[in-house]
């Protein structure tokens, strides 16, 4: 058995043991997300514009992560809508910033991996970089939106008549509780994928100026910072969405 299958099997068994039906759904959502990501990659290879592919994939991946992670529609619908809004805003920010930092494609440090490869592939590396940056923020957006929406739904269940202002304040409170650990989740996630690169930089005594202007470093920094921004604005947007849906549901409270 290959290592990936063995580890996948262990993860599946553990998820079902700990989470039951929900654990099974979580495992499936991983598989689906992987499948769609790879499908998107193939579409881009077939010359479909990368930014549009990533925008479409974004909606699908957010839907999979949110609706398969939780059954309660009172939580998932506002979380999904809010995360779509945030994702759209982040796509705009990413397009703007990537045109300014120009960190597309490869850097000299990649030379080893590029040996014998043709890099003139006729697809704009800038748009591929935009797609990659956008996709890597999605998980963080979905997670933060779920946390805020779930917390507010819980509060609404016990205090259905809470004024909007108070409810929004509660949403920001939840945001304050999750922000420290969420930023650290993202930081460690990126540190984990960048360890080798930083050993390279520090081992060869790159100066601060060299690092700041390095393509790979720039690419990763943009993703980390945009992910941070995404999580931060997800908090008020989700709180506002929960409130909006409470005030605009056809039969207040009973339907959605």
């Amino acid at each position: 058995m290959s290592t990936i299958n063995a580890l996948g099997l262990i993860l599946l068994v553990l998820m079902v043991l700990v989470g039951g039906k929900q654990g099974w759904a979580a495992f499936l959502s991983l598989l689906f997300n992987f499948g769609f990501l790879y499908f998107g990659l193939i579409l881009i290879a077939l010359q479909v514009p990368a930014v549009w592919v990533s925008a479409g994939l974004g909606v699908v991946i957010l839907a999979i992560t949110i609706f398969m992670g939780e059954d309660d529609l009172k939580t998932t619908i506002p979380a999904f809508l809010a995360s779509c809004i945030v994702a759209a805003a982040m796509l705009g920010l990413i397009i703007l910033i990537e045109h300014l930092v120009l960190v597309q494609g490869f850097s000299l440090e990649d030379s080893d991996d590029l040996e014998g490869m043709s890099i003139q592939i006729g697809i704009s590396y800038l748009s591929v970089t935009i797609a990659a940056a956008f996709l890597s923020t999605l998980g963080a957006i979905a997670e933060a939106a779920m946390a805020v929406a779930a917390g507010l739904t819980e509060i609404l269940a016990t205090h259905p008549n809470l004024p909007n202002r108070r409810l929004f304040g509660n949403g920001m409170m939840i945001g304050k509780q999750i922000i420290g650990t969420t930023l650290n989740t993202l930081f460690f996630g990126f540190a984990g994928s960048l360890l080798a690169l930083f050993i390279w930089f520090l081992g060869l005594h790159y100066s601060l100026g060299t690092i700041l202007n390095n393509k790979i470093f720039g690419h990763e920094m943009v993703i980390v910072l945009v992910s941070f921004a995404a999580v931060i604005i997800t908090v008020p947007v989700t709180a506002a969405m929960v409130i909006y849906r409470r005030n605009h549901s056809p039969e207040s409270g009973s339907n959605v």
Binding site: N33, T65, M68, L135, S136, E143
Partner: peptide
């Protein structure tokens, strides 16, 4: 579930 997805998206993208 959502947490595993956060890391998965970071590692794969």
């Amino acid at each position: 579930g959502p947490l595993v997805n956060v890391l998965f998206m970071i590692f794969l993208a």
